[in-house]
């Protein structure tokens, strides 16, 4: 059976088509205002890539913050379950899944089948999610995708003292005014975010068998800071981290 997993995220919608445990196609579009329309467009793109018609899909399962908004879905699964299923499918030894998305981040402890044993979600605050780096990139006047590589060029650690996004933005501005290197500020931004994420991970317990998923795992600056903060030399990052939850949803659709 062909199944579809749709991860309706705060910033982008991701679609995965699967057949018998193999990924057949994937697609990603911006969420926009109408999540249902965006999901439809993403599904259409994936079907086109696979050369399939809508009718060929046996079951559609959604996840993500807009998972209830998709009327044609067969079912929906929670974000924690989708991330755990997807992560364990890709990396069977993973026991802790750290999902850092645009608006939310979570740490999930799971068993070998991808069953969620415990989970923690970031406080209702942007400082622990991708939105934080976006705001700081704006303040630094750097495109978001350059923020990570920029921070890797940093030569010194400066503490990010402001703990909230609004204060952090004005702190970044004062750092710019005091002629601090942009690379160092970028690193401080990632250190701030990773400290928030790690604090959350500590609630479920830190297990070296971890994997980073979610769009923010694309950011090499964040990954570097994360490693430093948890004190691990190696941190596994999913290859296409933003698709892991959609894979999990597609797997759930096949159950």
């Amino acid at each position: 059976m062909i199944t579809a997993g749709i991860d309706v995220g705060a910033k982008t919608v991701k679609v995965i088509l699967m057949e018998d445990g193999k990924i057949k196609a994937k697609a990603k579009v911006l969420s926009g205002f109408d999540q249902e329309e965006s999901a439809k467009a993403a599904l259409g793109q994936a079907l086109m890539e696979a050369g399939l018609s809508r009718e060929a899909v046996g079951s559609i399962v959604t996840t993500g913050n807009g998972r209830k908004a998709i009327s044609y879905a067969t079912d929906d699964v929670t974000e924690a379950r989708a991330a755990a299923l997807g992560a364990v499918f890709l990396y069977p030894s993973a026991r802790t899944v750290i999902d850092v998305g645009a608006e939310e981040s979570r740490a999930i402890k799971c068993d070998p089948s991808g069953k969620v044993l415990d989970f923690a979600v970031n406080e209702k605050c942007a400082a622990g999610s991708g939105a934080f780096t976006e705001a700081m990139a704006r303040a630094l006047e750097v495109p978001l995708e350059e923020l990570g590589p920029l921070s890797l060029r940093s030569t010194q650690t400066i503490p990010m003292n402001a703990q909230c996004t609004v204060f952090a933005e004005s702190e970044v501005v004062s750092l710019i005014h005091s002629k601090t290197q942009k690379a160092d500020i970028a690193r401080a931004v990632h250190d701030g975010l990773s400290s928030r994420v790690v604090a959350m991970v500590r609630r479920v317990g830190l297990d070296p068998e971890l994997v980073l998923v979610g769009g923010v795992a694309h950011n090499p600056g964040f990954v570097e800071s994360f490693k430093r903060t948890v004190g691990l030399d190696n941190v596994r990052t999913a290859e296409e981290p933003e698709f892991v939850s959609a894979i999990g949803a597609a797997l759930a659709a096949g159950e």
Binding site: F167, S170, S174
Partner: peptide, 12 residues
Amino acid sequence: FDSTNPLGPFRI
């Protein structure tokens, strides 16, 4: 205060 000192905003 938030234990850390965001000096920029405070200075203003």
